[in-house]
Simulated assay, not measured.
Amino acid sequence: MGQDAKKQGKEENLMPILEHIGELRKRLIAILLVVFVGLIIGLVAANPVYNYLMAQEPVNGLPLHTFSYWDGIGIYMKIAFIVALVLALPFTLFQVWSFVKPALEEKEQGAALRYIPFALLMLLLGFAFSYFVVFPMAYNFTTSVSERLGLVETYGVVQYFSFLFNIVIPISLMFELPLVIMFLTKLRILNPLRLRKMRRLAYFLMVVIGTFITPPDVISDLMVAVPLILLYEFSVFLSSIVYRKQLEKDAAWEEEFNSLQNT
């Protein structure tokens, strides 16, 4: 009898876990389907996007070369994949929200849902900052070094776009930091106290990122590292707002609970 009860208890504990895994699997499949549809749209949009990028400074008028038969296809696929990720981002965040929705209260559900359009906005701001500010600095620095050395500039299309994407994509993703921190604070995984303790480490990482993706000169490094540090501080500020509301709510609940006990 005791063994049967233990077995039944284990099965009851296992069922919610299996249900969560099944729910997660469904949402991942839905996300992959949307990414696939976005990839098809991206393949259609790849040529206009490529033409737009090639018409902008600093590459405007600069001939790019292919050194492999697959270079052109590779560029098409990279552009299409980035377009697919941008298009799929709102749906992906909605699926994440739907998955954690049962763990949130009604007000928190609405607040978390409002993050989705802002996530897309922050990603686009990151694209703009990295493409129009950081990338020209890095490009001008590398070409100036080549000129000093008397080198003939012969660029491959793969090398150019790899150089571009390696700068644009990481910075764009970093612009999601405030929303990620706010969301984790809502879930009580992070709080501003912990973030302030991590400040030195965070500053160090921001400087490393700024140094890694920009030319090796102090001004360029600061022009990237300082906005990233400000982004982190803005994230801490937003986290403190969410955390303060949570404390006020907890205090109100505790006061109400104590008053009910006294009666």
Rank of each mutant, 00 (worst) to 15 (best):
V226D: 10
V96H: 04
E11D: 00
Q8V: 14
K26L: 04
F135R: 08
V208T: 08
A46L: 03
V224A: 08
I241D: 15
A202R: 11
G110L: 09
Y155T: 15
L195K: 04
L164F: 08
L87H: 00
L125C: 13
N262P: 07
A251R: 15
P192M: 06
P136N: 08
T142P: 02
T143E: 13
G61Y: 07
A5P: 03
V168L: 04
F91H: 07
N258V: 15
M198W: 15
R25M: 06
T154F: 09
P102K: 07
T263L: 14
P136E: 00
Y50N: 04
E23D: 12
K10Y: 09
L93F: 10
P227I: 11
L205S: 09
M15L: 13
K101W: 11
Y115F: 13
T185H: 05
K6R: 15
V218W: 09
N140I: 05
V180Q: 09
A251E: 13
L151G: 13
F81D: 01
Y232M: 08
A225M: 05
G61I: 12
F212H: 13
K6Y: 10
I82A: 05
Q3V: 07
F175C: 06
I21C: 00
L121H: 03
I219L: 05
L28Y: 05
P102Q: 10
M182H: 09
A103G: 14
S144Y: 09
F141N: 04
G210R: 02
P117R: 13
Y131Q: 03
A88M: 10
E256F: 11
K245Q: 15
H20K: 10
T214S: 08
R196W: 14
V207G: 01
S68E: 03
S240K: 15
I213S: 05
D250N: 14
Y243C: 05
N191M: 03
L222A: 11
V83C: 12
T142H: 04
T92K: 08
A55T: 11
N166G: 02
V168Y: 01
I21E: 03
L32I: 03
S162F: 01
K10M: 14
I82Q: 05
I21H: 01
L125Y: 06
P216E: 06
M223I: 12
V133D: 09
V83S: 07
Y52L: 15
V49D: 02
